[in-house]
Design a binder for these strands. Structure first.
Lengths: 210, 210
DNA sequence: TAGATTGTTAATCGATTAACAATC
DNA sequence: TAGATTGTTAATCGATTAACAATC
């Protein structure tokens, strides 16, 4: 349904629209104009209207946009109404943080299993999810319709494990490691989160403001 | 030293250059051409040369770039040689994950204290850093030359606390919450990490590939 | 109807890519 | 010197901004 070839810049702004609209909605606000939304978001009315019109005309001339309606439309564009089953691999600190970050279920992603190499952690639970050994991944994925893997282990561990994950059919990765999955497999969907890159960017900006 | 007005796109590519050069360096590789680096990084030689020349001519015609030399130059541009003292506020799961993520010290950021509202956690330690109550922030920041705060608490908590942090002189924030600090204070440096936006982007891309 | 605000086209601006002279 | 590769200018491409007709 969403048009082909929408630029990545537009796509990365959609979650932000969704967040602001969710907040307006929870405040009971029923309508919003592109001008007002732009001033809330430090954006421009032009950009908001252009972005939305990549997907359809969701507003009403002379009125503006229905907050609840637009929120719902953007949710659908983002696929938040699609349920996904997700496993997490690497139950270190970052893995634990992600695993206990309940809000991801609101976005359609259900974490159903956690896998870990370190034997000390196996058998313990996180949010009632049992931590299992790595060698059970293949069977588990095949039996449980898993489409997404969260990778919270080091680069080298991902390098060793990626073929196994790919071979049992996982094509979607939320990757917190520095391993470059897209370079190895072309038919996968990868979202990288590089926390150290983010901190380096902060470091740069601090230097500039002196 | 780095020129004014370098675009954010260029800046956000610098950490990635730094990572790839660090890896090449650790593999003992001494020189690299823009063409080879581009093919490693799925970039283009033109873009790499343009990006670098925003800051200076680091290469040598007919030869390429010294890996160690360029890595060091980019490190300086990013300000990784500048030491920073950082506090973390919010010792929940995400806060713990960040606090135990040792590698940030390599980037010049030293975590010296953790603050938390929940009394149960106070007095316990994370990585030998004592967790202290929120009301000690002001004194601590003034006594310890803190320039950066990591915010790993919910939006509402940041909203309540941001004035306190600003008033005791913190001007640099690594913000994991959805509170928009830049809108309230204009003379601050903020790097936002929105994990839920990242997952929504993954959700969108999964929808596209079906 | 008049006012408001969208959807959409046109104009501008900036970023990326290509080309090539400089030079190691 | 000849080959390689940079630094930098020029050309292209795409994204953002502005303008305005359509319309609620």
């Amino acid at each position: 349904m969403p048009k082909e070839g929408v630029s990545i810049q537009v796509i990365r702004r959609l979650p932000r629209y969704y967040r602001y609209l969710s907040e307006l909605d929870s405040e009971g606000i029923e309508k919003i104009s592109s001008t007002k939304l732009a001033s809330m978001m430090n954006s421009t009315a032009s950009q908001i209207r252009q972005d939305l019109n990549c997907f359809g005309g969701f507003g009403q001339q002379g009125y503006g946009y229905s907050v609840a309606g637009l929120r719902s439309e953007i949710g659908k564009i983002l696929g938040l109404d699609q349920p996904h089953n997700m496993i997490l691999i690497g139950a270190g600190n970052l893995g634990k943080a992600i695993a206990t970050h309940l809000s991801f279920e609101k976005l359609g992603f259900k974490l159903t299993a956690i896998f870990e190499k370190d034997e000390k952690l196996i058998g313990t639970t996180l949010r009632d999810i049992e931590i299992m050994p790595d060698d059970r991944i293949e069977d588990y994925v095949k039996e449980n319709q898993i489409d997404t893997a969260v990778l919270t282990m080091p680069k080298e561990a991902v390098k060793k494990m990626i073929d196994k994950l790919y071979d049992c059919g996982i094509r979607s990765y939320w990757n917190f490691s520095h391993y470059d999955i897209s370079k190895k497999y072309l038919d996968v969907t990868v979202e990288n989160v590089h926390l150290s890159d983010s901190l380096m960017t902060l470091s740069y900006m601090m230097n500039q403001s002196d």
